[in-house]
Design a binder for these strands. Structure first.
Length: 331
RNA sequence: GCACAGGUGGCCGAGCGGUUAAUGGCAGCAGACUGUAAAUCUGCCGCUCCUUGCGAGCUACGGAGGUUCGAAUCCUCCCCUGUGCA
């Protein structure tokens, strides 16, 4: 598939340049912590450069999870085509792999239309799965996971760690004995692949498959921490005021206590639905969770290669100008 | 005013004569992260210095004294908070 965009798209994008400068189409990756203004900036860039938005958000992929995921509104989505939003129901587990495949397909299609793909992302793993790919190891095995999860509950995660130590010593060294989910996945891979995960990771034929056929321009939003935290607080309160608890009540009634409702904001709203917390406490907890999350996101994004960092919020004129000139320069 | 219960590091909260700069938790900061990732996990966390060491010095458990070789821990007085009685 990748070659399609390679062959078709550059013709028009590079039409104003000499033929020997023909190059793959550009894709903009907009990254930054929650509430940094990615949506606003994505719309501004999209309208200026003829773009389409590819969301990179592990919660916005779920239908019905609108308020809590700060999904672009219907009005915003009417301004430009949006992709990878409402891809699954909350009771259908979505994964980084599924995201990567669908997002890549979306990128090809957009480029084939001669439009500019703008990936707008807060989910680091999804973004990396898109750009770097995932190793070609086994996907999740639900039955095996369930067994391992029960083992962890009964005997503690250290037991899983010892198990992994036998199956794959190098991998065990890289996963902390307390990190149950990662231990489970590693053991799952070893068992399903019938060989150590570290070996699978190292094999050429199973290695990551990086995205090809695009030139990537990464634009990172890095607003001042204090101001970001304030914005997060305001946005969280606004979510509850807009009816997050009701949205959550509806999702719970329809899908049950699914994993997706563990997401920030929903987890707290759920506590209100269940009368385990009053709304005021839930808001405070959600704000705290989002602040912590924003910090983790920055830790992840700092490792992204070649990011064109902008110090402000996406909605600020100066930021928009800086981002536009970055895109101009890349084109 | 009397009687109880309390005042501990940014917050909550243990400790109740000595391995206590003071268990925990939270917040904060830094980090990890290959198919549930808005998940999960790790480190640091009074101040200063250096030869960065289970290093040295300083400051710290409401305030002031006292007892003791030694006090956040015991005693006295004072200040403040909560509850009950007046």
């Amino acid at each position: 598939m990748a070659f399609c965009a390679w062959l078709v798209a550059p013709v028009t994008i590079a039409s104003s340049r000499p033929l020997d400068e023909i190059q793959p189409p550009l894709a903009v990756l907009l990254l930054g912590p929650t509430a940094s203004g990615k949506t606003a900036l994505s719309l501004a860039l999209g309208e200026r450069f003829g773009g389409e938005i590819v969301s990179c958000d592990s919660v916005a992929v779920y239908r019905g999870m609108d308020l809590g995921s700060a999904k672009p509104t219907q009005a915003e989505r009417a301004r430009l085509p949006h992709h990878l939003i409402d891809e699954a129901n909350p009771d259908e587990p979505f994964t980084a792999g599924a995201y990567s495949r669908r997002a890549r397909a979306a990128l090809q299609e957009i480029a084939a239309r001669d439009r500019l793909p703008i990936v707008t992302g807060g989910t680091g793993l999804y973004l990396r799965a898109l750009t770097e790919g995932l190793f070609a190891g086994p996907e999740r095995q639900n039955e095996l996971r369930e067994r391992l999860r029960q083992t962890a509950e009964k005997r503690g995660s250290a037991w899983l760690h010892r198990m992994l130590l036998r199956l794959d010593p190098p991998r065990a060294e890289n996963i902390h004995a307390n990190d149950t989910p990662k231990l489970i996945r590693a053991i799952e891979v070893c068992v399903a692949a019938q060989r150590p995960m570290s070996e699978v990771l190292g094999r050429e034929d199973l290695a990551r498959d990086p995205l090809t056929g695009f030139r990537l321009l990464r634009i990172g939003l890095n607003p001042p921490r204090g101001a970001l935290y304030e914005r997060i607080n305001l946005r969280c309160s606004a979510m509850f005021a807009a009816g997050l608890v009701e949205e959550t009540r509806g999702l719970l009634a329809r899908y049950g206590p699914v994993k997706a409702l563990d997401a920030l904001g929903y987890r707290q709203a759920l506590a209100v639905v269940r009368s385990e917390m009053n709304e005021e406490a839930a808001i405070a907890a959600a704000q705290q969770g989002h602040r912590n999350y924003a910090k983790r996101q920055m830790t992840w994004f700092r490792r992204e290669p070649e990011v064109h960092w902008i110090a402000g919020f996406g909605g600020e004129a100066e930021t928009v100008r800086a981002a536009m000139s970055a895109v101009d320069a890349a084109q």
